[in-house]
């Protein structure tokens, strides 16, 4: 049983300079330990996460916006505990999933982009304006009334990202955003991520995506085994899997 903090702690004033902090974090699914001993402070603008299948990357990513609450330790976003201030944390940290089909919930493009704003109680007129602006910026303006299921894979991922960006979170976590995409769309998403003003954490198997990043974490067997600038971190990752 984890102890609930009092309302005073939950209402603590957010401090964006603190970034995302993991304090003694570990996670288990049932008996199975998926993450252990994580003590990190994520303040950089561009952070990459690499690791083999099943190493715990997605669980790590989900910890960062409270989709998964750690079994031990705590995760703080701008000083807010994901266990007690989930709503506020999710407003601050957007999440883009690997499979866009799973995160598009409305039948047509513009309606889906507006969904998160509706949840935030943004008035209809402002919602329409912000949706139009985002669709325009990401080349989906001509598709506003298109059925989402008729979009191409690349367009679906753009739509999924647009649905997050329209909510203007300060940080965005991407879980393998290009794994299902072809080379052209992979590059398009890479450029999009590059141009974002938000701080991002990107889980990826596409090592080229990490060029120009500030920091890369290598996850293996539920631990962070390397934490460095992209070049040395990727080298460590290659060395790690060399003899498997």
């Amino acid at each position: 049983m984890r102890l609930r903090r009092g309302p005073a702690a939950a209402a603590a004033v957010a401090d964006p300079s603190r970034g995302i902090e993991l304090q003694g974090v570990g996670h288990t699914y049932g008996e199975r330990t998926v993450l252990t001993g994580l003590d990190l402070r994520l303040t950089e603008q561009r952070i990459g996460v690499v690791g083999t299948n099943g190493s715990g990357k997605s669980t790590f990513a989900r910890l960062l916006n409270g989709l998964v609450v750690p079994a031990v330790g705590s995760v703080l976003v701008d000083g807010l505990d994901t266990a007690t201030a989930a709503r506020e944390v999710r407003r601050r940290v957007g999440f883009v999933f690997q499979d866009p089909d799973a995160q598009i919930v409305h039948p047509t493009v513009a309606e889906d982009v507006g969904y998160g704003l509706e949840n935030q109680g943004v008035p209809a007129a402002e919602r329409a304006e912000r949706v139009a602006e985002v669709l325009d910026r990401y080349g989906l303006a001509g598709h506003a009334d298109h059925p989402a299921h008729l979009l191409s894979g690349g367009q679906k991922q753009l739509l999924a990202i647009a649905g997050v960006l329209v909510m203007r979170p300060a940080r965005i976590v991407f879980d393998e955003p290009t794994t299902l995409l072809d080379l052209v769309n992979t590059r398009r998403i890479a450029r999009l991520v590059e141009g974002l003003e938000q701080a991002v954490v990107v889980v990826t198997h596409d090592l080229a995506l990490l060029d120009g990043f500030d920091r890369v974490l290598v996850v293996d067997g539920g631990r962070v085994v390397a934490d460095d600038r992209p070049a040395p971190a990727v080298a460590a990752y290659r060395a790690l899997v060399a003899d498997r």
Binding site: L67, R87, G94, F95, F97, Q103, G116, E118
Partner: peptide
């Protein structure tokens, strides 16, 4: 799919509606 959709709804603030 339903599991991930549930998470996506959460991530986009569905519980606050």
């Amino acid at each position: 799919l339903a599991h991930t959709v549930g998470e996506a709804l959460d991530a986009r603030g569905a519980d606050t509606a």
